[in-house]
């Protein structure tokens, strides 16, 4: 696939979707209406799906759209609608200036720390020579894009996989039990 690879084109789109993601995320946290916030979050997820694909994780990109944007976020929206919380609340949802500034400071601190750590750990251990390898697509022609994921998932991590399925089951049962309308006898 060497011949179809255009670094400039690739880089442009990578930055584009990255910036869209950041912008959507900022919009998401600042919206007062839960519905608007949810929609902006979905936008972030779509952007991320694009980035996954660009990072040669096509399968992940696909389920990002299907599961995250499609299923989970829909559930969120559904709940927002169900509880009739669509409009911005009378009570200001966002905290006062003080906490906001504090939160911003904390956020910056985390950002800085993560950057420092990533720089010292990851770049320190891998020389630029390895970075070149980055651009080599991971998926080979025979296995397609799914096999590299499916292999470890169903071999080494089979137990964990089964456990997550049990976890899901438990979560479903739990959600049903918790969400069940309590009879007058059960009500506290």
């Amino acid at each position: 696939m060497d011949n179809t690879f255009h670094p400039l084109f690739y880089g442009f789109h990578f930055y584009l979707f990255g910036l869209i993601a950041i912008a959507s995320a900022i919009l998401f946290v600042t919206r007062k209406s839960p519905v608007a916030a949810a929609l902006w979050l979905i936008n972030v997820m779509f952007c991320l799906a694009v980035l996954y694909v660009m990072l040669d994780a096509q399968f992940i990109g696909a389920i990002q759209v299907l599961v995250y944007a499609g299923a989970i976020m829909v559930v969120f929206l559904f709940v927002v609608m169900l509880l009739n919380l669509g409009q911005p609340d009378d009570l200001a949802d966002i905290r006062g200036t003080g906490p906001r500034l504090a939160a911003g400071a904390v956020g910056l601190a985390i950002l800085a720390e993560v950057m420092v750590l990533a720089r010292s750990r990851i770049q320190g251990e891998y020389a630029p020579a390895a970075a070149v390898e980055l651009l080599v697509p991971a998926a080979d022609a025979v296995g397609g894009v799914i096999a590299p994921v499916a292999g470890p998932l169903f071999r080494e991590h089979l137990l964990a996989f089964e456990l997550t399925s049990i976890l899901l089951l438990a979560a479903i049962v739990g959600a049903v039990v918790i969400g069940k309308k309590q009879g007058p006898a059960d009500a506290r």
Binding site: A25, V29, R95, V106, L108, I110
Partner: peptide, 14 residues
């Protein structure tokens, strides 16, 4: 990292 930080700030402010 940026997205994560935005998430954190959201958790703290909303």
């Amino acid at each position: 990292a940026v997205l994560f930080t935005i998430g954190v700030v959201g958790v703290l402010t909303r």
